[in-house]
Design a protein around this nucleic acid. Structure first.
Lengths: 229, 229
DNA sequence: GTGCGCCATTGATCGGCATCAAGCACGCGG
DNA sequence: CCGCGTGCTTGATGCCGATCAATGGCGCAC
């Protein structure tokens, strides 16, 4: 049980979960926060585990995933530093994590007691509303993903994923680096590493992207965007 | 602009959106409710339309769907009488419907002003919490769907859909009728009508289901359940 | 430096599901 | 009763992406 220090607490205040809270509320919450380190490959929780807390990732990378009967895994979400996850356990009657969570890159994790946060939120309709807004965004993105999975082919999905990594939307060209190993991204997109590799090669042959390791250069973002039409 | 009569209002109170509201809150809300009839095939709203209200279906059936560039449609949700939808427009910065909605079977629809409901909810943390719990359930079901779409084949998905229609979970055998046209169900499951038909035939040939039109008989629910393992 | 292990790539093959194309059954209006 | 439309079924074919298998490249331990 390690409480967050003042520096980390200040960081937390920037996150949407805490931005709308008063100092008094924050103080009330503090004893129910816990900071811990984790390693790459470490299992944080398994699907079905009883859940008393949700999380906010401070450093490192985490994958949320499910495993089929056949053993293949689908990464539902990639958590990067600064993002929170599993907030929804707050609202479950019998709270259980709906996915597995495992470290991809070691880091530091803040866990937040669900009941404590719920208590604080009761006095803050603003936080309530913010949380709901975030959940709404999540629902939207799920619908987008479901649509993409059923209505579009893999090339479309991969191009779209790349476009989602472009920092600014206006720039004519873009340079970016893949946030993690390619196999992980492939699983997130619901394709095999082989297919992912092949599509990337195709895009290079058609001169819409250029890549070297995890570095991707998009000479013409608009051209790439047209590619998925 | 037709206000709901007292009978309908009493019905509404049974729905989770209104169950936790006091009489005073309900009275405040009443002028912001509107009842209208719609026909089969009638478009209720399109994806991207500006949204000021969300809905609760009183009678009839509605499909929520998206359309790909190629023109094929994927039904995201089938709304039956008693269900609410598009609640999430309440929490959007610039509210727009994220899907198309169209009547499948004519009926009656109650629309609820998002801003009015939000105002009322501000005074009722219980409602707040209930709404969030529902949104959480929705998120869960999306994850299940995404998992099914990426990790399981069509036969699994179809069998699972049928199992979801079984009224009670304990019964050894079950009789049920498909809630709508088969083509609609197929689109909901992300397969073509042809494939849907073929899989159903297969299941019949293997004697795990028997069917006649929209009527389905499952002689052994456990056997069907094993089928998707 | 050398060997090992993991990941990415490339090629060959296979299979599931979509697509295209007929038939078939039922309901409805004339 | 017939004709037509709509939805369901059934068959033939093709394609996309998975699978199986081999190779290549890079980092790391020793």
């Amino acid at each position: 049980m390690t409480r967050p220090d003042d520096r980390l607490l200040a960081q937390l205040r920037k996150h949407y979960l805490f931005a709308d809270l008063s100092d008094a509320q924050m103080a009330e919450l503090r004893p129910h926060l816990d900071v811990r380190a984790f390693d790459a490959g470490e299992t944080l929780f398994d699907q079905g585990d009883e859940a008393a807390s949700f999380f906010m990732l401070h450093r490192g990378t985490i994958k949320l995933f499910r495993v089929s009967a056949g053993g293949q895994e689908k990464i539902m979400r990639l958590i990067q530093a600064g993002q929170s996850f599993a907030e929804s356990v707050m609202f479950m009657g019998e709270p259980r994590y709906p996915v597995n969570a495992q470290g991809l890159k070691g880091g530091q994790l803040v866990s937040i007691s669900a009941s404590a946060y719920l208590r604080v939120m009761q006095a803050s309709f603003a936080s309530c509303r913010t949380v709901m807004a975030r959940m709404t965004e999540r629902i939207q993105s799920h619908w987008d993903e479901i649509e993409a999975l059923t209505l579009q082919n893999t090339q479309y999905r991969i191009v779209h994923y790349l476009l989602g990594l472009v920092p600014t939307n206006e720039a004519a060209s873009a340079d970016l680096s893949l946030p993690t190993r390619k196999g992980v991204i492939a699983s997130h997109l619901g394709v095999t590493p082989e297919t992912f590799s092949r599509v990337l090669r195709l895009l290079q042959e058609d001169d819409v992207i250029r890549m070297q390791g995890a570095q991707v250069h998009i000479p013409n973002v608009a051209a790439l965007r047209r590619y998925s039409a």
